[in-house]
Structure formats: structure tokens, C-alpha cells
């Protein structure tokens, strides 16, 4: 009997297989069952947190495809979310469209904007690209505030309840399954994307664009594609955000949101689908954690009462970004991978 080797693969197909071992399939099934069971066993607040984590995950996946896999820094991700959110809001409230029109329309609208930014940004790299995308974000923010005929400016738009084929999703529990399903779809699509020809082209561009071009990767095509896919994800996430929040306002989509998404992919792990999920959940949960911590602290030190506000969360993001970049550049997915390898190779863990 041959000794089973855990890293030995005979064909390229085996190397890129989605489920490498039967155990991964098993754990996945368990995870899916757990996800389905969540609303029955936990309190509504946790369900709400998972709801927003789902939206964050979709947007973070988009940014990770663009920044983590293709290496194109984007500081304007919030702008694409805004475009998606406003598309859904306007389509659903003014034109009374159904969700299966609104959400794809949000994605397409954001993807078109992505193309618009991507094509001129082809010549730019690194810092220049960061600034160009950032200025795009500022311009979109300005437009959402100023173009009152379309966006109602600072009054914001109310969004009707999400209605799936006649079934109104009017509570967080009901939204939960819908969001989890869309997120699962997004995760599967991203996983499949990065293990195909397109994904390999993206990674080649990130690692060295000139070398990629020499090897026959069409830079123009794939960079623009990365922008379009990344912003499509963001647009869909924006549309979902509009449905979940029932109300959108230009203040929801500031530069800070873009930074938050960057924080997600850095903390989660650049160039990793799993990392995007980790990061999105982590960044969504951290404020709750800090809030709970602040409450416990007030019990111990009563002098600290009422000292907690949103600024602490933002400070924590800043600190987390710095700490992860300095001490753990591979992010949570790197830590996860290390732990996994440790178990896999046990007792030969070194």
C-alpha cells in the first residue's frame, strides 16, 4: 500500500480542484448546515451582523479581485458601491422595478463606471493609480450630493422592502437566507474565476505586468476586465446595502468606506478569496467587540462612561491596518493557512 502523501498531485487538474480532499467537502457541508441553522438558534442581532457581513464580503471580494489578485490599487471602492446603491434605490423606488432587475442593473452600472475609470487608468500604476481612483471617489461623492434631481442629494432616498417573487423580506431573518445565497454565489464565482485562465492572468499582472505582457497576457483587456469585475461586485453589494438599510445617503459612501474595504482585504489577506470573507467578517465584528469592551470597562471604571463613540472604532481600524501590515502581511488567511498546515503535517510540524 502506498503511503498517502498529502501534497502529492499527479495532474494539473488535481492541483486546481475546488475540493482537494474529501474532508474539505465534509467541513463545507457542516458549515452550510450551520449557516442554515443560525437564525433558529441565535438572537436577531447576530443575524443582522451576519447580514451586513455578507454585503461586506461581496464588496471585499470585488476589491480583492482588483487589488489583491490584479494588483491595481483602488482607493475609490466606495464610489462603486454608491453607484450600485443609487441604481437600486432609484430603480426600486421611482421605477418600481423588481430585485432581479435592480441588482444586476446595479452591478452593470458599477461595472460600466469601472470601465470608465479602468480605461484611462491603464497607463497608471502604484501611487498614481491610488490617487486617480481616490479622486474618482471624491467626484462621485460630489455628484451624489449635488445632482439632486436624481439622487435627492442630502435628503437621501428611501428604498422599498425587498420582495422576492411576491414574498416580502421585511425582517433581518428573512433577508438572511437571501443574502447568504447571494454571497455564496459570489464566493463560488470568485473562487472559480481565480483558478481559471482569467485568474492566472490577473495574478501574472500583479506579480510583474511587463513579464505578463511578454508571456502573451493582453494587459489592456485583463486590467479593464479586473476593474469591471471588481466594480460589478461592488455594485451588487451596494444594491444589497440599499435593500437592507432601506435608506441611503451620500454620507454612507465616503473615503472612509473605501479605506474600510481596503482594511478588510489587508486584514483578511490580499489575493485570497477566503481572506476576503475572513476580513469582511472581522472588520464588521470589531466595532461590536469594541462596544462590548467599552461597556465592560465602564463597569470596572465608572469614570469612562459615555466616552465611547464611533471614533474608537475608526481608530481601531487604523491601528489594525498598521499592525497587520507590519507584523502579519499575509493577514488572517495566512494565519489560517499556517494553523491548517500545522495540523495537516502533524507530527512533522516545523
Amino acid at each position: 500500500m502506498a503511503i498517502r502523501s498529502k501534497t502529492f498531485r499527479e495532474s494539473y487538474y488535481e492541483d486546481i480542484k475546488l475540493f482537494q480532499t474529501i474532508w474539505i467537502k465534509f467541513w463545507m457541508m457542516l458549515f452550510i448546515i450551520a449557516l442554515v441553522a443560525v437564525p433558529f438558534v441565535t438572537d436577531p442581532y447576530l443575524v443582522y451582523i451576519i447580514d451586513i457581513s455578507c454585503i461586506a464580503t461581496i464588496a471585499a471580494l470585488g476589491l480583492n479581485i482588483l487589488t489583491g489578485f490584479t494588483g491595481q490599487i483602488s482607493l475609490g471602492h466606495a464610489a462603486f458601491l454608491a453607484i450600485g446603491a443609487y441604481t437600486t434605490a432609484i430603480f426600486a423606488s421611482t421605477l418600481n422595478m423588481k430585485f432581479w432587475v435592480c441588482l444586476p442593473a446595479s452591478g452593470v452600472a458599477a461595472a460600466c463606471a469601472g470601465l470608465l475609470v479602468g480605461i484611462p487608468c491603464l497607463r497608471l500604476k502604484g501611487l498614481y493609480l491610488a490617487m486617480a481612483t481616490m479622486s474618482f471617489g471624491v467626484v462621485v461623492e460630489y455628484v451624489t450630493v449635488t445632482w439632486e434631481d436624481l439622487t435627492l442629494g442630502v435628503r437621501g432616498i428611501s428604498v422599498p422592502t425587498l420582495d422576492v417573487f411576491g414574498y416580502a423580506l421585511d425582517s433581518n431573518e428573512k433577508l438572511y437566507y437571501f443574502l447568504v445565497a447571494v454571497t455564496a454565489l459570489a464566493v463560488i464565482a470568485a473562487t472559480n474565476l481565480v483558478r481559471t485562465r482569467v485568474g492566472r492572468a490577473f495574478i501574472a499582472i500583479r506579480d510583474r505586468d511587463i513579464a505578463a505582457e511578454v508571456m502573451g497576457v493582453n494587459l489592456t483587456r485583463y486590467k479593464v476586465l479586473a476593474f469591471a469585475i471588481g466594480s460589478f461586485y461592488a455594485g451588487v453589494a451596494g444594491g444589497l446595502y440599499a435593500y437592507v438599510m432601506h435608506y441611503i445617503h451620500p454620507d454612507h459612501f465616503t473615503f472612509l468606506l473605501s479605506v474600510q474595504y481596503l482594511a478588510m482585504i489587508i486584514i483578511g489577506g490580499l489575493g485570497s478569496v477566503l481572506g476576503s470573507v475572513f476580513g469582511a467578517v472581522f472588520v464588521t465584528v470589531v466595532p461590536e467587540f469594541i462596544k462590548a469592551l467599552a461597556q465592560t470597562m465602564t463597569l470596572v471604571f465608572p469614570a469612562l462612561e459615555d466616552k465611547y463613540d464611533d471614533a474608537w472604532n475608526i481608530a481601531a481600524f487604523g491601528l489594525l491596518i498598521m499592525l497587520f501590515l507590519i507584523f502579519e502581511p499575509k493577514g488572517l488567511s495566512g494565519i489560517w493557512l499556517r494553523i491548517k498546515t500545522c495540523f495537516k503535517n502533524w507530527p512533522y510540524t516545523y
Binding site: 487589488t67 490599487i73 502604484g126 481596503l262 475608526i314 487604523g318 498598521m322 501590515l325
Partner: peptide
């Protein structure tokens, strides 16, 4: 570059 840019952005929102 990306990492360094992000560190300064992290610093900025922290400050």
C-alpha cells in the same frame, strides 16, 4: 508600494 501606502492611510485614520 501598496503596503507602504496603506500603512500611511491606516496612520491617517488612526490619528
Amino acid at each position: 508600494v501598496f503596503a507602504v501606502v496603506m500603512v500611511t492611510i491606516g496612520l491617517s485614520i488612526f490619528l
